[in-house]
Design a protein around this nucleic acid. Sequence first.
DNA 1: GATCAAATTTGACACTGTAAAGTTAATCTT
DNA 2: AAGATTAACTTTACAGTGTCAAATTTGATC
Lengths: 200, 200
Amino acid sequence: MSTAKNRHHHGDLKRALIQAGIDLLEEGGLEALTLRKCAARAGVSHAAPAHHFAGLPGLISAIAEEGFAIFSKHMTDAIKAGEQTDRERLRSICRGYLQFGLSHSGLLKVMFGEHGLGIHAPRNKREEADAYLILRSVCAPFVLDGEDPHTVEAQVWSLIHGFTLLYIGGEFGCSTTPIEDSPFEAVMALIDRIGTQTET
Amino acid sequence: MSTAKNRHHHGDLKRALIQAGIDLLEEGGLEALTLRKCAARAGVSHAAPAHHFAGLPGLISAIAEEGFAIFSKHMTDAIKAGEQTDRERLRSICRGYLQFGLSHSGLLKVMFGEHGLGIHAPRNKREEADAYLILRSVCAPFVLDGEDPHTVEAQVWSLIHGFTLLYIGGEFGCSTTPIEDSPFEAVMALIDRIGTQTET
DNA sequence: GATCAAATTTGACACTGTAAAGTTAATCTT
DNA sequence: AAGATTAACTTTACAGTGTCAAATTTGATC
């Protein structure tokens, strides 16, 4: 009696298909992601995936969900690294966001894409590592008195999400050497002003 | 002797194909955009587009280029509306950015997508209406002494681009009634702090 | 009017998603 | 334990897609 859920031929086909899909996605982008190729990589016939996902959109949704899990782990690690002040944690999460985008650009696009469900889709397991809750907790210390928490979240999220996508897309002069670049530092400088009093 | 470049059967097939592509894109998203459907809508055979574009990616690039032209006009109109202060112009361009995204979401995704070429691709005609130059000119008044102009541009662009994509994706509670909503106002409040002195 | 080149069509091929029917293997029932 | 049942997977088939090579049409040129 193994830990795998499926009993027949393949040990855990569903997971194997998701992993094959992620590999194809990161190797050749969304266009290379194909049900038949995933099936071939998993060693099953081309129609097998239909029994585990609702077509290609269904597989993409599952990949996106797995992507959010990886993303959440990435964020959690970025925050846990050493003792940090609230401000440092906010900076760390932004750096982690960009780094995730750089190393998993295909995954990030799928997560927020057409069939990606978005960040608020209910993930069955480990609610405490939910990506949105991480963002929320890191932003919380910078919510001013009487201010809506969503305000800070929207500011931080929009800034780092927009910068990451534009940076990945090469809009800031395609992938200049270090991350510590002027446009990123500009964004971080603005992040640093969030949660401070506006000058009169 | 007409103004059309093409001499044979169709008056201006290239433009007709691009327009058909934009229609398909906004009707059914990127998945509905197909060379054969574009050809059918333009009333030509399925292989005709190959003589005007480098395959589907080529058509998408052309659509993206047309999208940037529409985008630039949208921005220009937003700025020209009435006499505005520099600060009002900055707010207007951000509102225009979001409004364009709301009414042309498919086009916006293609413009910054895989085959979209991005905002810096050389557009042959009307350089003065280039989208990036518009952003640059609106941001210019808020560049502090000795500061890199790219700083302000990166801040403004990242903020409004990220917010627009997240808003379109329904991440802020899918399309709440008016644009003057709390998350958008939060972003605008941060925009209003750009170009002001940081408190000591 | 014959020639020529560009624009478009026709036909074909490989690849894709998808559905229906068939096959295998593990579980259940009695 | 033997047959029935069901889940996992395969096989087969079909419509739609991009793409290529070869006709074919069309407008212009000489």
